[in-house]
């Protein structure tokens, strides 16, 4: 009996998004690309870019970070630049995600200007591309992102994030004006993701600058909803739906919020092992659904995901 490898024909493709710029083009050097697939699997068509991990860091010591994470960053948490350097030098970060949480009016209410100042320092401290995040406050975030976008002009960052609950037009304008990408965040619903992309494009955003975040629910806390949403988005993208053929990002760090990950409970064994495994399992699952960019915290999980991701694309 004969057998042929079941290779599918795809009419669509996934857009390629670039972070960072080479020095020759006025950037700081390091360039990272995600997406660009023309097929679901490497046995069908070589996969152009391996999945990328971006390390989460915070502009102030993040309250409530569990010990299995703090142990790696205790010495640098007061200084975001040192924190970024450590992620790059010791743990091989491809990118850094800075969360400007102290801009939240309920935390320190730092001004967009102060956030931009820190952004400048961070750009000096390391040469990898950045994801720029706000505090999650819908009034403040567009202002913070705009200010940071301005000082990092030409570095092709990812502004995180645009959604329908805030002034996304401001974020779109900043991205187009200062040459950045935008993270489009929707909640586990492919139609919502599509709708949001359409609105962003109508507002003037180049579709090749969109990365989709369909929300990552942690393992045990709704991950099956994320699986369905992401798989459908990726399949529809490859089938030629040009409104959802963007690369995808996952807030994998959500996994450490699961009580099975962080809670001290002798019946469950040491959380030093549980916590990274919860993040790894969540991330791996998202990777199998097509996710291209992973926002993560724990160096153990980061390394594991990166190596498996590399294998999947070579």
């Amino acid at each position: 009996l004969d057998w042929e490898p079941p290779i599918e024909k795809y009419t669509g493709y996934i857009r390629e998004v670039q972070f960072g710029k080479p020095k020759s083009e006025g950037g700081r050097g390091k360039v990272v690309k995600i997406g660009g697939q023309k097929a679901l699997y490497r046995f069908e068509e070589p996969q152009p870019n391996p999945p990328v991990v971006t390390f989460d860091i915070f502009d102030m010591p993040m309250p409530g970070l569990p010990k299995p994470i703090r142990q790696f960053f205790q010495d640098v948490m007061e200084d975001p630049c040192e924190w970024a350097k450590k992620c790059v030098k010791e743990f091989g970060a491809d990118m850094i995600t800075i969360h400007h949480i102290s801009t939240d009016p309920k935390i320190k209410d730092k001004s967009p200007k102060e956030a931009a100042k820190l952004m400048e320092d961070l750009l000096q401290a390391v040469d990898v591309p950045f994801v720029i995040g706000g505090s999650g406050n819908p009034q403040k975030d567009p202002l913070v992102l705009e200010a940071c976008a301005e000082v990092s002009e030409g570095d092709r960052c990812l502004l995180a994030s645009a959604n329908l609950e805030l002034d996304y037009k401001k974020i779109v304008d900043a991205a187009m004006k200062y040459d950045h990408n935008v993270l489009a965040w929707s909640i586990m619903d492919p139609n919502m993701a599509r709708d949001l992309n359409r609105k962003l494009i109508e507002a003037g955003l180049d579709p090749n600058r969109i990365v989709m975040d369909p929300t990552t629910c942690a393992l045990g806390y709704g991950i099956e909803f994320s699986i369905n949403a992401m798989v459908r988005l990726r399949l529809n993208g490859l089938k030629g739906d040009e409104l959802v053929n963007m690369p995808m990002s996952s807030g994998t760090t959500n996994a450490i919020g699961a009580r099975e990950a962080w809670m001290n409970n002798p019946e469950w064994g040491p959380r030093e092992y549980r916590l990274p495994l919860w993040e790894i399992t969540t991330g791996i699952t998202m990777m199998m659904c097509g996710v291209d960019l992973f926002m993560m915290l724990n160096p153990i999980s980061v390394k594991t995901l990166k190596e498996i991701g590399k294998a999947l694309t070579t």
Binding site: L219, G220, I223, E224, E260, E267, W268, G269, R274, W278
Partner: peptide, 20 residues
Amino acid sequence: LDIWELMPILTLRQNIYTDP
């Protein structure tokens, strides 16, 4: 056979096999 190893495996299985 450690519980901390089996927890993520069994939870993932439970999640993937819930009936949508």
